Amino acid sequence: NSLAEAKVLANRELDKYGVSDYYKNLINNAKTVEGVKALIDEILA
């Protein structure tokens, strides 16, 4: 998966839960796919 794909999928996942734009910005600023995954795990914990 590319970083861009990971960000799109992460933001879709956040949308399902009604997560605020603050967290979407964190996702969009992530530098690695692993970073995106770690943020998602933390946000949805």
Rank of each mutant, 00 (worst) to 15 (best):
N1L: 14
N1I: 15
S2Y: 08
S2D: 14
S2V: 10
S2P: 12
L3D: 01
L3P: 01
L3I: 04
A4V: 10
A4K: 10
E5W: 08
A6K: 06
A6V: 10
A6W: 09
A6T: 08
K7F: 01
K7E: 02
V8F: 10
L9P: 01
L9I: 15
L9W: 08
L9S: 15
L9K: 15
A10F: 03
A10M: 02
A10K: 00
N11L: 12
N11A: 08
R12Y: 13
R12L: 15
E13H: 08
E13P: 00
E13M: 15
L14Q: 01
D15N: 05
D15C: 04
D15M: 08
K16F: 09
Y17V: 09
Y17A: 10
Y17N: 07
G18W: 05
V19L: 12
V19Q: 08
V19T: 08
V19W: 09
S20H: 07
S20R: 04
S20N: 10
D21T: 04
D21M: 06
D21H: 05
Y22K: 09
Y22Q: 09
Y22R: 04
Y22E: 10
Y23D: 03
N25H: 14
N25S: 10
N25K: 11
N25I: 09
I27P: 00
I27G: 00
I27K: 00
I27N: 00
N28Q: 11
N28L: 11
N29M: 13
N29T: 09
A30R: 03
A30N: 02
A30L: 05
K31N: 12
K31G: 08
T32F: 02
T32M: 02
T32I: 01
T32A: 02
V33I: 15
V33E: 04
E34H: 09
E34I: 07
G35P: 00
G35A: 15
V36H: 00
V36Q: 00
K37Q: 12
K37N: 10
A38F: 11
A38Y: 09
L39H: 02
L39R: 02
I40E: 02
I40K: 10
I40R: 10
I40S: 03
I40A: 08
I40H: 03
I40N: 01
D41W: 09
I43N: 00
I43H: 02
I43L: 06
L44C: 03
A45Y: 10
